[in-house]
Amino acid sequence: MDDIFGIPAPLLFGQLLLGLINGAFYAMLSLGLAVIFGLLNIVNMAHGAQFMMGAFCAWMLLAWAGIGYWWALILSPIIIGFTGIVLEKLFISKLYKLDHLYGLLLTFGLALIIEGVFRNEFGSSGLPYRIPPELSGAWDLGFMFMPIYRGWVVVAALILCLATWLIIEKTRLGAYLRAATENAALVQAFGVNVPRMVTLTYGFGVALAAIGGVLAAPIYSVNPQMGSNLIIVVFAVVVIGGMGSILGSILTGFALGIVEGLTKVFWPEASATVIFVIMAIVLLARPAGLFGRA
């Protein structure tokens, strides 16, 4: 196979695919953060922990109840989303009248609790989760071998992101949501139950993180730290994209994943930091973020 820029093509495409997969997770997680932030005005520091819970939920369903991947894909977000609703009702809802920073501190505390409990229960080493048989194997695309599961993750993430975008931009429910983001008091005056909508929105954002966790389970090993390192990168992605636009956070997520993948090919040492460097440059040039409103 030919070289491209002096790089063997399979290596280049392999890293591009890996970048695309990472980008899919960045997009899904930053989308959930943006939806939650839009209505609740809090940064959900527990998002990474909830992503991890989604993966563990899939593992538990399989190991303890024999429930396979496809049902986990549906059940895990429902279960974890429900825990999110409980958290919102019990704790987060107490903070809406306070400074936003308290929401950040509270969810950080929740993340510590969740991670600590899972580390006690399952250790730090990580548990395997098998790729479902329907999606194992690889396609020969001519220029590279593409593991079917990895292709599925990218497609599923794209579908999820677009569906979320459609719900928010094109449905009546989404219109309520956008209106409440602009002016919650006014929407409530029109007879919409805003507190319930806020609770459900948090649950929905958490469920998105949990689906991400289920999708990630067969690729990464399921371990208690899998979310916390990812979520810091996602924060940088959110700063780069700005939280103003749904489509913006999806685009930024995928694009940065690809950039990271390419960096791994051309300058491997910088691949861990490239997104943070891009964040710094964007802040210097456009402090509101690429798609943000100042």
Partner: peptide, 21 residues
């Protein structure tokens, strides 16, 4: 107590934010 220290710290965080700001 290992990882329980993290849990306790998290609980203190939550308690401080909710009750002892």
């Amino acid at each position: 107590m290992g990882a329980w220290v993290t849990v306790i710290q998290g609980v203190i965080f939550v308690a401080c934010v909710l009750a002892f700001r």
